[in-house]
Amino acid sequence: MTDTSASFRLLPGAPGSPVVLHVPHSSRAVPADVRGGIVLDDAALELELDHITDAHTAEIATEAAASAAVTPWRFVNRLSRLVVDPERFPDEREEMLTVGMGAVYTRTTHREDLRAAGFDGGPLIDRYFHPYAAAMTAAVDERLEAVGHAVVIDVHSYPTERLPYELHGDGPRPPICLGTDSFHTPPQLMTAARQAFAGFGGTGLDSPFAGAYVPLKHYGADRRVSALMIEIRRDVYMTEPGGAAGPGLGALAKALAALVDAVGTEAVTGV
């Protein structure tokens, strides 16, 4: 199944693969009507996109999928996270609300105004967040029905230097940060990731970013859904902020493919 929605796309993998590579923050696209609600001028918006976009992560996932022995499924956000951030909780559970970066951002990475005071993000949640969540849920449900388990691997990047919005940025900033969930990240999934990314000078755990994306339908309820976030420090593969990719991109894609192969051939659930 391929989703042809303008805001996200599900790219099919092998029928027997449990793996969904989730790429939520790679795009810089902001629809014109959404741009109208952002108070930054064009130059400031471009700079903010440089800081907030996980540049080239879609390309890393594409190359990994192409070289994996068993092709994973890919779910790719085609809009910027400045439209909505599909990985946030859409309610008061989201801790990033304290810095104006819930499901709809009202502040920038440098804690400046992104949208006017009192902005109503409800229409953006209805238009973009909920359809994205429903489609991602359906993609995971399809893997559960097809092979009995699903492995969601988030593909992210983060800046070498801490940005002001980061709530937990005072800890280690390793080349590869593994974000985990106590319910959905079994030890064998973490072990496979450490082995796959061992050649990049070290992997860390849950610093500076923690957690892993699981559809709310399954979150904390279904151990057949495993999840892990791969956070790549940007100096490993690109010029910061928002610059071109370098040779590290290919090496990262090969490592991600190795992880896909390691977890795509056996169950890594916590059942």
Score class of each variant (00 low, 15 high):
residue 209 F to Q: 10
residue 187 P to A: 13
residue 192 A to F: 00
residue 228 L to R: 01
residue 199 G to H: 06
residue 172 P to Y: 10
residue 235 D to F: 06
residue 231 E to V: 03
residue 214 V to I: 10
residue 236 V to Y: 02
residue 213 Y to H: 13
residue 174 P to F: 04
residue 190 M to G: 12
residue 200 F to I: 03
residue 173 R to L: 10
residue 196 A to N: 05
residue 208 P to K: 01
residue 206 D to K: 02
residue 221 A to M: 15
residue 192 A to C: 02
residue 205 L to D: 12
residue 180 T to P: 03
residue 180 T to F: 03
residue 182 S to A: 12
residue 214 V to T: 02
residue 182 S to G: 13
residue 187 P to W: 07
residue 221 A to I: 11
residue 195 Q to R: 11
residue 179 G to W: 02
residue 240 E to G: 11
residue 218 H to R: 04
residue 238 M to T: 01
residue 194 R to G: 09
residue 237 Y to S: 07
residue 217 K to P: 09
residue 190 M to K: 15
residue 219 Y to P: 04
residue 232 I to Q: 11
residue 203 T to G: 07
residue 176 I to R: 04
residue 176 I to Y: 01
residue 183 F to Y: 14
residue 223 R to P: 09
residue 220 G to K: 06
residue 181 D to M: 04
residue 218 H to Q: 08
residue 239 T to N: 11
residue 173 R to M: 04
residue 173 R to V: 12
residue 196 A to Q: 07
residue 191 T to A: 11
residue 205 L to W: 05
residue 187 P to H: 05
residue 194 R to H: 12
residue 216 L to W: 15
residue 228 L to V: 05
residue 210 A to G: 14
residue 177 C to S: 10
residue 213 Y to L: 15
residue 183 F to S: 02
residue 198 A to I: 02
residue 189 L to M: 06
residue 212 A to I: 07
residue 214 V to G: 00
residue 213 Y to R: 12
residue 214 V to L: 03
residue 219 Y to M: 12
residue 206 D to T: 06
residue 190 M to Q: 13
residue 192 A to W: 00
residue 204 G to M: 03
residue 192 A to T: 03
residue 231 E to M: 03
residue 241 P to F: 10
residue 217 K to I: 04
residue 230 I to Y: 01
residue 181 D to A: 05
residue 193 A to N: 04
residue 231 E to W: 06
residue 175 P to V: 10
residue 223 R to E: 15
residue 193 A to H: 05
residue 241 P to K: 04
residue 172 P to I: 14
residue 197 F to L: 07
residue 172 P to D: 14
residue 223 R to I: 13
residue 201 G to K: 06
residue 200 F to E: 10
residue 191 T to V: 07
residue 210 A to P: 09
residue 190 M to P: 07
residue 208 P to T: 02
residue 239 T to R: 15
residue 187 P to Q: 07
residue 221 A to Y: 15
residue 184 H to Y: 05
residue 216 L to H: 14
residue 186 P to R: 08
residue 212 A to G: 10
residue 191 T to P: 00
residue 222 D to H: 02
residue 219 Y to T: 14
residue 239 T to D: 13
residue 218 H to T: 05
residue 217 K to L: 13
residue 207 S to E: 13
residue 217 K to T: 12
residue 203 T to N: 10
residue 196 A to R: 00
residue 214 V to N: 00
residue 201 G to D: 15
residue 183 F to A: 12
residue 176 I to E: 05
residue 241 P to I: 09
residue 216 L to Y: 15
residue 188 Q to C: 12
residue 239 T to S: 15
residue 235 D to I: 08
residue 182 S to R: 13
residue 218 H to L: 01
residue 183 F to E: 11
residue 227 A to Y: 05
residue 183 F to V: 14
residue 194 R to N: 14
residue 199 G to P: 07
residue 182 S to I: 15
residue 209 F to D: 11
residue 227 A to Q: 06
residue 186 P to W: 01
residue 231 E to L: 07
residue 192 A to R: 00
residue 209 F to C: 09
residue 219 Y to D: 15
residue 172 P to H: 11
residue 220 G to V: 14
residue 186 P to G: 11
